[in-house]
């Protein structure tokens, strides 16, 4: 049980995909403009990581190693398409806001990275916990980044104005702001952990 907890927690802390492994930065930069987007993207990616980790680890003895990568990709793409269809059907506005970045989860390096580095070498339960940890860590990072960006760049939290009269710095909502916020957060986290 303790080991499972460790697999889960490492994705949030010491192996956080965004801040420590620097994986999956492309969707992070693109969609972290509002908390809703960040959270939605995080949940979608979590579902895909957990699903693909589960399937990959359960068939890891069956798939010959020479064709494992194409098989993983097919499995991941299947989960991504499920997410995309469900999102289009039930959360159309979120699907519109995330746009091309939902299908692009398929090439998110976190997903294939976990499938290859963890799920293909470990059991089903541990892989599920690893995927959950990675997904929650990714969601946490996205929500953190998008909270900062939405607050400073749009003057709102969850679409509600924080203080009247505050004039938001548009830079944070645009691409340079994403790089800036991620860079400063990473630097800050390194600064704290290296003590």
């Amino acid at each position: 049980m303790k080991r499972l907890l460790r697999e889960f927690l490492k994705g949030i802390t010491i192996e956080n995909p965004t801040f420590r492994l620097a994986l999956g930065l492309c969707p992070t930069l693109a969609i972290s403009t509002s908390i809703v987007n960040g959270f939605g993207m995080g949940l979608a990616a979590t579902f895909v990581i957990v699903g693909s980790n589960m399937i990959v680890s359960s068939i890891r003895g069956v798939i010959p190693s020479k064709i494992r990568i194409p098989s993983f990709i097919v499995i991941i793409a299947t989960f991504v398409t499920i997410v995309e269809l469900v999102m289009k059907a039930y959360f159309p506005s979120l699907s519109k806001a995330l746009g091309i970045f939902v299908p692009l989860i398929a090439v998110n390096c976190i997903v294939l990275g976990r499938a290859e580095a963890f799920a293909s070498k470990h059991g089903v339960v541990r892989s599920i916990f690893d995927g959950l940890g990675m997904g929650v860590g990714f969601t946490f990072a996205l929500v953190l980044i998008s909270t900062i960006r939405e607050a400073f760049g749009n003057g709102t939290l969850l679409g509600l104005i924080i203080v009247k009269g505050f004039e938001p710095a548009l830079l944070f909502i645009l691409a340079p702001g994403a790089l800036l916020v991620i860079g400063i957060l990473m630097g800050f986290i390194n600064h704290v952990t290296e003590r």
Binding site: E167, P168, A169, L170, L171, F172, L174, P176
Partner: peptide, 8 residues
Amino acid sequence: VFLQISWP
């Protein structure tokens, strides 16, 4: 540039 982008 920070100002130019933020408060055009």
